[in-house]
């Protein structure tokens, strides 16, 4: 680590840090392609157990919710067993949950639909607010029961109320939260299992996506034939653990 001076700007080779602070990553590339071992940046696999963002009560609500969006049936296990709630929890605890990378400078003001979302409320904050008001709404409607304690029919009725806007959440439109949790649940269901959902690549097996295979040159010409390769993910292959 060293401070910039002209001699270093002129005399550096391959790659050199311009400034000493850890955040300043400005560099000079010169003389050859910069390369150092171990410079890859693979995703960290989600570790099971516990909640990183949700409270126990929030987690129970989300597990119940994802289990209705992705119900257990002949096609796959339910959303809870597949890890969709864990997926959402880990996402909310990370960059996604805090709108990292978004332009977050004000003034914040509502625009047209075409101008896109303008709210400063992050996904993590959105869940916290909406889950609390969802349970409050369920309590008043279903004799004191929270969402997780409802029957499947009552849960579906509640979700439909959010979807069509008839169920308000603390004065706000429940549709926005419905769209958010639906998108997050389906992303967890369909994304690579390394992020905590889509356990055993259940959704990929259901639709016939063989996963992240690197090379389909042997298949491009085989028109209208089912690809007979086992599904594979970034961190797991059904055969690797056997």
């Amino acid at each position: 680590m060293y401070r910039l001076d002209r001699r270093q700007l002129l005399g550096s080779s391959a790659i050199a840090l311009l400034l000493g602070s850890e955040t300043a990553r400005a560099a000079i590339v010169k003389g050859g392609l910069p390369w150092k071992p171990g410079s890859g940046d693979p995703p960290a696999a989600v570790t099971p157990g516990g909640w990183r963002y949700f409270t126990a009560q929030e987690a129970a609500t989300v597990e119940a919710f994802v289990d209705r969006l992705i119900p257990a049936d002949v096609l796959t296990p339910g959303g809870k067993e597949l890890g969709c709630a864990v997926f959402i929890d880990r996402q909310l605890a990370g960059p996604y949950g805090r709108f990292e990378g978004h332009y977050m400078t004000g003034p914040f003001q509502q625009g047209t639909k075409q101008q896109g979302p303008q709210s400063p409320v992050t996904p993590a904050q959105h869940y916290r607010q909406a889950l609390a008001t969802l349970d409050a709404a369920c309590r008043s409607k279903f004799g004191g029961k929270v969402f997780a304690d409802l029957s499947d029919d009552q849960k579906d009725e509640t979700i439909k109320g959010l979807e069509d806007g008839s169920l308000k959440l603390g004065g706000t439109d429940g549709r926005e939260f419905f769209k958010l949790i639906l998108k997050d649940t389906q992303n967890g269901f369909l994304a690579d299992p390394i992020y905590g959902g889509n356990k055993d690549m259940a959704s990929w097996k259901m639709i016939g996506f063989p996963g992240a295979h690197y090379d389909y040159r042997n298949w491009i010409d085989r028109h209208n034939q089912r690809v007979a390769l086992p599904p594979v993910g970034i961190n797991n292959h059904p055969d690797w653990s056997q």
């Binding site: 590339v29 910069p34 890859g40 992240a212 690197y214």
Partner: peptide, 17 residues
């Protein structure tokens, strides 16, 4: 700076999320 050998690794490049 971005390059194939350091940034686009086949072991994790195919990540839709």
């Amino acid at each position: 700076w971005r390059d194939t050998a350091t940034d686009f690794l086949i072991s994790y490049a195919q990540d839709e999320l």
